[in-house]
Amino acid sequence: MTLNKILDKALTWLVPVAILVLWEVSARSGILAARLLPAPSSVALAFIATLRDGSLWANTLISGERALKGLAIGGILGFLLGMLNGLWPPAEKLLDSSMQMLRNVPHLAIIPLVILWFGIDEAAKIFLVTIGVLFPIYLNTYHGVRTVDRGLIEMGRVYGLKPTALLWRIILPGALPSILVGLRYALGIMWLTLIVAETISASSGLGYMTMNAREFMQTDIVLLGIIVYALLGKLADVATRWIEKRALAWHPSYQENAGAAI
């Protein structure tokens, strides 16, 4: 690596590091009240402390479990509904307009109703996540199936493919890029929904951890919770990118040597 390249790399980190240093200095000198915004170093200490007593890990795990359960249920339901409505016009006629109407209701608006139905136990949070992820996956699956090139399906028929082969080899792979876009949206909504749900009513999980810390004025733990959320969001994004890179290896935009290969 040349000196220029090192300088170039250093430049991108300059602003974040400067902010951290400035923040630390102002917190220590008392310009910032530690109650409102504790120094980065005390957030780091809180991280170590919660890691030692196991509370951070346990809360992250329980939140992760809720998120994945909701994603699995909502994702599968959305996918199946999307396939059904995309492939079978009577189902589309029957269900699609209702789905379009329901998706316009902000799903967090039904929190009071959900608390009435499920109380504040696990089912309430999983239900909210389910509703949250269902619509983006439904919409993108439906759209993906509807926009598969009709010419390819006609080709498949001319070349003797049976309906199941058409589904597995033409329709599903053709819809996959769109379905994965839906998954990416859904992952964002999944965390958002869970944070809100856990913040409002929970006795465990990351949202509970931060709300509990607020009660005791442990601002460092509140900040830590926010940072963990950011990291989990990033992790979900990395995971979808990884899936896309593998599942869409055929796609021109995922081929490193696409231009040079001809």
Binding site: D149, G151, M155, R169, W250, H251
Partner: peptide, 15 residues
């Protein structure tokens, strides 16, 4: 009308 998600050989052997 090739299937972009299948390799050339699998496109040819579509049946």
């Amino acid at each position: 009308r090739l299937l972009m998600w299948q390799r050339v050989l699998n496109n040819v052997g579509i049946s």
